[in-house]
Every structure is written in C-alpha cells, then in structure tokens.
Design a protein around this nucleic acid. Sequence first.
DNA 1: TCATTAAAGTTAT
DNA 2: ATAACTTTAATGA
Length: 198
Amino acid sequence: MVIDEEILYQMGATIENYNVSDFIFCENNIPSYYYQIAVGEVKLNNYNEEGKEIIQTILESGESIGESLLFMDKPYPINAVALTACVIIKLSKSSFFLLLKKYPEISLDMNRCISQSLYFKFIMTQNICSQNPVSKLKTLMDYLKSFEIEKSPFSFQIPLTRQQMASLTGLCVETTIRTIKAMERNNMVKICNRKILY
DNA sequence: TCATTAAAGTTAT
DNA sequence: ATAACTTTAATGA
C-alpha cells in the first residue's frame, strides 16, 4: 500500500465506489485528486485513431492512480477505468501536498512508487518496439511473474485475459492467442482450462 | 509474418 | 439472455 489509509482519512480523504467500466477520470481532465485503490482493479488506457484500445498499465488494491500527474500542470493523457467494482480513496491535490510535507517518509514512498511505474514503462516501451510477438508476451509475463515468490516454471497463472495481454503489447487478440499456443508447443507456457501458466 | 475479418464456441453477468 | 472472451480459418499487406 502506498499511503496508510488512516492517514489519508485524517487528511480529509473520502471514499468513492465505482462499478465495472466506470471512468475514474478521463483523458484531458485536470488532475485535482490523489486516488488510491482500496478494493478492486483499474486500468489506464488510451484509444488510438482506429479505436483500438491501448492499455498502459493495470493497477490493483493499494496502488495509486495517475499520481505522477499531480506533480505537474498538465491534463491527464490517459483514462482510468474500473476493471472490477472498486472502492477508491480520494484526496484533494492540496491536501495531498500537505500530507507529503507532514510525512516526509511518505514522500519518499511516493518516489519509489513513481520509479516503479516508470520502470514498467521502460520495459514495455522497449518491448513495444520489438517486432517479435513471442518476446513481447514473454517480457510482459516475466514482469508480472517478477513479483511472485515462487519462481518455478508454470507456477504462475497470468492474471490477464488474452484481450488484455494484446492491448498491453499492441498485438491483436488473434495473434496473441496463436503466439501463446505456439509457446505452449515449445514448453514455454502451459495452458490449463484456458488459464496461462508461466 | 502479422493484421483483419468473419464465424462460431465458451464463459461470465 | 446477453455480452465479453476465446478460438479457428481465410485473406491480404
């Protein structure tokens, strides 16, 4: 968890509930709140000219949403959409900065947090430029698995749909499916009732 | 080779 | 039931 929920409430944070596919904020909105997920999953996305969805990242409980934008004066370049029913803690920008002043340790945590998402971005942009779909998907799965304690092969069930994997890597779903099947044939993954084990 | 289109089967709501 | 996801196959850049 990025910031202790009690501290957020002390600073005047409120709770918001969202249903699946509700927008928490939209592209071009002015960032004016700090958002932290108490329960649920959220994706940050864009739509390209053809209307194809590009998922920038998927966030889960305890993570903050688009916090890096609070430190500058630009509108959001992405949408934040609930993937599940969500409970989200919301704190005004001004209170958020008061909080950072009051708790320097949290300010440091915030830096760690932004570094983490920047790290993911570095890996994924490099990835998106690579041509080969196997390496795109492998890079994504390696990243996801890197947070797991259990490192043995096929111990990790990918918590994404093929559609989401496609939107994260810039591939089309069909190519994602075919590539995953080819990877199964090469013993890089296992597929157990449609779930991908890596 | 990969994207696109279409069609059909499967799962989740 | 209906929508969302998964899969296969054909075709074209």
